[in-house]
């Protein structure tokens, strides 16, 4: 049993899952935004980064990890809601390219703005959990207390989102507003308010990922959420952009695949693996692996 845990394959699985839950979290936020407003938020990763920097700054002195997490998530919530109100609302009903261009522009502003305010160097939030891997008889099990926290955090966020959407009245209204905004409006649902809330929730979920990343080995820089956005997008796209659970599962799957490619394939393959995974998965099932929706032919 212990031999299995220290084997190379299990090491790759542990590392892959730890990384993959972060892709899943960003993918989950993209799915929430896509479901409620049919917009792909290219600034999702950058918004999470910005919110986490705000949290860090507010708690520069006497850092308490959990307070920092809470403030960052709250900052993400506010930032997401404000973004929907100011930038996204004028885009409803406009061609797809308008929203893509505006969100890419916002991504540029957030990253350049973060460098302007906080500088380009890496920053860390020191977590109370150790980053060093468990050891057994001189062999390494590629799991650390922090990695377990990371996985637990992702699962918690996912359960909260799923529970909110499925079991609460608010969740029912959110789904109604996304599915049939006109009907929902006629039935007295305040659709505009709910779209703002959807963006706020998505951004808060993304902020959890950024806080976790800022406590990891690399820390947080204004631009290192880019890679998480790309993988998160791939996870969401492979999962079908419609399915929150699909995004998380696809994220974990992609994290593992990537880890195996890095471990076993030549180094120049690793940089192209995300594009290949995306293309292959979407060529096989354009509607996503976990989506029930039928795709339009032509």
């Amino acid at each position: 049993m212990i031999d299995l845990l220290t084997s190379r394959v299990m090491g790759d699985i542990f590392l892959g899952v730890t990384q993959g839950v972060l892709y899943g979290l960003i993918g989950l936020s993209l799915v929430i935004v896509w479901q409620s407003t049919n917009i792909l938020n290219f600034a999702q990763g950058a918004m999470a980064m910005f919110a986490t920097y705000v949290g860090m700054t507010l708690l520069e002195h006497g850092l308490n990890y959990w307070a920092c997490l809470a403030i960052s998530v709250a900052a993400g919530f506010v930032l997401g809601g404000a973004t929907e109100r100011v930038l996204v609302r004028p885009l409803y009903g406009k061609p797809e390219i308008n929203s893509i261009v505006v969100m890419v522009g916002f991504l540029g502003i957030l990253e350049a703005g973060a460098i302007a305010i906080w500088g380009g160097t890496s920053r860390m939030i020191v977590s109370p959990f150790s980053l060093s891997y468990f050891q057994h008889n001189g062999k390494t099990i590629f799991l650390s207390p922090f990695a377990i926290l990371q996985i637990a955090a992702a699962v918690t966020v996912m359960l909260i989102v799923a529970g909110l959407f499925r079991f609460t009245k608010l969740g029912l209204q959110l789904r109604a507003a996304a599915l049939a905004p006109e009907v929902a409006r006629l039935l007295g649902v305040r659709v505009n308010r709910l779209l703002t809330l959807g963006w706020a929730l998505a951004s808060a979920a993304g902020a959890v990922a950024a806080v976790v990343i800022s406590s990891g080995f690399e820390g947080l820089t204004p631009t290192n959420m880019d890679v998480y956005f790309v993988f998160g997008f791939i996870a969401a796209a492979v999962g079908g952009l419609e399915s929150p659970l699909g995004a998380v599962l696809a994220g974990v799957l992609i994290g593992m695949l990537q880890q195996f490619i890095v471990d076993y394939a030549p180094p120049s393959w690793a940089s192209f693996s995300p594009v290949l995974i995306l293309v292959v998965a979407l060529m096989i099932r354009p509607q996503g692996l976990f989506s029930k929706q039928r795709v339009r032919r032509v």
Partner: peptide, 11 residues
């Protein structure tokens, strides 16, 4: 980062 901010705003 001024250039990046200006480009984003223009966009």
């Amino acid at each position: 980062s001024l250039k990046g901010i200006i480009f984003g705003l223009i966009l």
